[in-house]
Structures are given as C-alpha cells and as structure tokens.
Design a protein around this nucleic acid. Sequence first.
DNA 1: TAGATTGTTAATCGATTAACAATC
DNA 2: TAGATTGTTAATCGATTAACAATC
Lengths: 212, 212
Amino acid sequence: MEQHEISKAVIRRLPRYYRYLGDLMDAGVERISSAELSAKMNVTASQIRQDLNNFGGFGQQGYGYNVKYLYNEIAKILGLDNVHNLVIIGAGKLGQAIANYSSFEKRGFIIKAMFDNNKDYFGRKVGDIEIMNVDELSDYLSNNNIDIAAITVPKEAVNPIADILVKCGIKAVWNFAPVDLELPKGIIVENVHLLDSLMQLSYNLTEYEHTR
Amino acid sequence: MEQHEISKAVIRRLPRYYRYLGDLMDAGVERISSAELSAKMNVTASQIRQDLNNFGGFGQQGYGYNVKYLYNEIAKILGLDNVHNLVIIGAGKLGQAIANYSSFEKRGFIIKAMFDNNKDYFGRKVGDIEIMNVDELSDYLSNNNIDIAAITVPKEAVNPIADILVKCGIKAVWNFAPVDLELPKGIIVENVHLLDSLMQLSYNLTEYEHTR
DNA sequence: TAGATTGTTAATCGATTAACAATC
DNA sequence: TAGATTGTTAATCGATTAACAATC
C-alpha cells in the first residue's frame, strides 16, 4: 500500500496534540470530541480529524476519541515508544540547559554524554552526565549506540563536528548553531534558531506599533 | 493605502534571508540575484522575489539586489533598527544560556535583568546581568522601559508570572515553557517549544526507519 | 542597444475548511 | 432507535511556482 507523504505542517502539530492530550489525561479526562479539543487548541475540528486520519482512524463515531488511547497512538507516531540516546556537543550554558531538562528523559530521550574542547570542563559532570574531551567523540560514537547529536557549539565549530558525526554514522542532528546544516541525504537535521525566533517576535512587535 | 496582511510563512523566512545576506556581506559579496540566492538557500527565486516584494522593491532589473542595502532593509522590516530591552524570568541554566548569548545583544536585544524565586541566586550575576528577586519584578517593570520578557521557568510557574507581566503592560513574551501562553490581544507571544522540536526530529527518524 | 533580472500577474499546487454519509 | 460524532470527500482558500512584460 502506497503511503502518501505527510506534510510538515501536520508533523509540526502532532507534538502540540500530544501535549494537550497529556494535560487532559492528567486532568482525568477520559474522552474528548474533535469539537471540544478544537475549542481548547484554537484549531478547527476538521483539521484535527484530517490530521489524525493521516495515520489511522483513532476515534469512534458518536463517541469521540479516547484520550489515553489517542495519546499513546500519537506517541507511537512520533517514535516516543523507542528510547533515543543522545550526546550533546558543546558543554556551555545551552548544552547544560539541555542536559538538565528532565522532560526530555521523561519522553525517552536519554542524554549519555557531553563533549567540549575546553579542558577545564573535562571530567566535570552536569547532573549525571560526564563532560568528555571532544577528541574522544569519534571513539565514543563508534562504541555506543547513539542516535542523535545535539550541537550547541559556536557557529565556527559546527562544520568539523558535523564531519565527525557523519563519518561515525549519526542518524540525526539537533542543531542549535545559527547555520542551516547540510548533511548527506538520510541524516535528519532539526534546526533550532533562537535568534530567528526572537526576530519574528521583533517583527510582530514592530508591526503592531505600525498598524494600530 | 490598505496594506494586506503578511503571512506567517513569509515572516518565518525573513530571519533566514537576513542570516544569508549577513554571511554574503561578511564574504564581501556586493550584489546577488534572486537566482543565485535561490541556489544557496534551497528556495525558489520566485519565492524570494515574492517575499521581498511584500515589503517593497529592493532590487533592480538587470542587476539583482545590493547585498548590504537589502540586509539593512530586512533589518528594518524585522525591527532590528530599534533597541529592545529584555528581562529574563527564570535564572536556571536555560535563562543563563540566553543571558550569555552575545548574538542577541549584537542585534539590539539588550538583556537588562534576570529574576528568580530562589534566594540563593539573588545578587549573583550572569555576565553583567544581575539576578533579582522575582518579588521585585513588578516594580522593576514599572520603572524601566522593558519590551520583552523571556520566560524560562517551569510550567507550573508560568501563569502567575504571566499575570504580573500583563498587569505591568509588557509588550511581548518569549516563552520557553511547554505551554501555549494565552495573553490578552495586542501582547505578542512567541513560543519556543524545545521538546516539540525534538519530537519532530524523532518523528522523522522513525519515519525514515519505516520507509527505507 | 542587447542582456539580464526584477516586479508582478496568472497558473498551479497543496493545505485548510465545510459538508455529509457512515456508523457507533 | 435517535443522537452524536467520526472518517472522508468535495469546495475553498491561500501559498508557491511559472511566466513574462517592464526596465535597468
């Protein structure tokens, strides 16, 4: 059966559905209709049903969706039923912030090690996670089952790091440096550009001042 | 003259254009055609021209675009010709990472103060930026010209903070907590959901493994 | 002037919304 | 069974791409 390509817009919304369903579950809600969820999330009920039906029929006519079931199904779609091992490259404040953030671990993203080129850091720990010499990165990746590398180094340091990652067969890169990383086909890249986000905010702020 | 609404998709691309033009400027490139830029950025030349023409005609037939001029014009569109004063609420690792990140200051985003509820932090500094008692937030906002508040506190702490910010007339909030903040109309909210981003990465990773 | 490349209109494509038959 | 609400098809809307006349 030929599966049609799911659009990026849909995939961007999945974690949001997941978050709201998690909150509903915590609140003890057992079932919800697309109309009710629509009201909470400020999206149309139609869009919710369309989005979900890309992956299967998770609801029941006349009833709606079972919150817990849908929550778990979305988790599967997002691959959260598998554990993913991460390393963080760059042990500065941002790398440490990520290492510290317990919600990642809760969703199966396990941070195994951090790397830096500053020898003052070597051997220190962030929580349980050891900071290692970046010279050992290549060896480490060869001997451990790491799926994802988070890059939190300065712009200039990204390319040499990326070369090592590609050479060692990394599957995915979560990049925080302000460059659009180009890696060989098949390697997933997810960029987080904080400055871009702040500039979008600034645009909206400026826009607002212009038009009122 | 009635100005038509610019779509979010366009606004999301502006910082990216800005970034590439900055790189070109640094590389000493004086002019560029939409076709050349298109090749570098993996977008169509048509889209570049359409996007820019939402804001004005910045190019010249037969010549292309002057890199420096276009760079500065986009800066104006994004509101980067004005200085924006920020406070950071939440002095944990993520707040510190943002406080430390010099690129923000370079673009006119000036971090004035940080706030936390943990008294161990009070009076400490991150770089030049003092960490204050969150009880003083309201007073501080009243007496200083702050446009933007970055929120880097845990989920549970967001709503009381948001109430204070709204009461003190904050213009924009840059929210890092995993909730979709609902503020009164006119207040700009930009959410950065790192876990959502990681889940999208996970989806793509899983997708890839399914379909090859 | 001839060549290049924009600005802009028209065509296409894809995503969102509406509508409703299927069905619990 | 009647009512509710999904899954899904069709209609609409908006964004992207193509094409080309305008013009430097």
